[in-house]
Design a protein around this nucleic acid. Structure first.
Lengths: 107, 107
DNA sequence: CCAAACCGTAAGCATCGACTAACAGTAAGC
DNA sequence: GCTTACTGTTAGTCGATGCTTACGGTTTGG
């Protein structure tokens, strides 16, 4: 499984995106993240594990708590994938529009 | 289900990404897309339906064939989501690094 | 009208994954 | 050493979904 696949698989789940967006405001502990979400704390732990393996978050221990924060590395990989696709997709789209205008020439 | 959710759900599946990437070189018919993929043609049709509802592809009829091409609209939505996340994520990450350097002051 | 080509859809099945409950492990306080 | 607080992990269940087979619909051609 490539890293891009991990990122896509990680951000596909709505609950996992909610966990991820909850870290947008800054580092938070697991309990802090779980509080307010409609799932239990172990579920959040599992989601954080997936996000971590995708390179989207990272953690550090502070006493008994574990503080998670966003790691831009994973988002960068996804951004690179989209950008790489973006240019060629725009090219193909422009060619498609142009061909649609000249399609009667081709028959 | 929001449009972003649709795009994420659409690009999460590896086969569906393969279908999508196959359109990167230009418009193709359903049979053309299915040829070379390890799934049957109806499966490709189902994937194309999901991609279309996510705004990632569009189609036009040419005789009995149906030609699919990439629609940048969906990719744009995903790009916007990532970009919006990207800036605040970088901010939070920088703040996290700075706090890590000053954490002994806070206690 | 009949045949062929191309495609979308429905039903059924198998697999994957998200969730909960229960348990194990680590650190701080007394 | 004992208790409390916080978290990761595992077993098991259940709903979601990707795949195939079979069928119906549409267009082209004679």
């Amino acid at each position: 499984m490539t890293n891009e696949s991990k990122v896509f698989a990680a951000l596909y789940d709505p609950t996992r995106r909610a966990v991820f967006e909850r870290l947008r405001g800054g580092p938070k502990s697991v309990g802090q993240i779980a509080c307010g979400l409609p799932v239990t704390r172990p579920a959040v732990s599992q989601h954080l594990k997936v996000l971590k393996e995708a390179g989207l978050v990272n953690d550090r221990s502070v006493g008994t708590r574990r503080i998670y924060h966003i790691d831009p590395k994973g988002l960068g990989a996804m951004r690179a994938w989209i950008d790489r696709f973006w240019t060629s997709a725009l090219d193909a789209f422009a060619a498609e529009l142009e061909r649609a205008g000249h399609q009667q020439e081709e028959g």
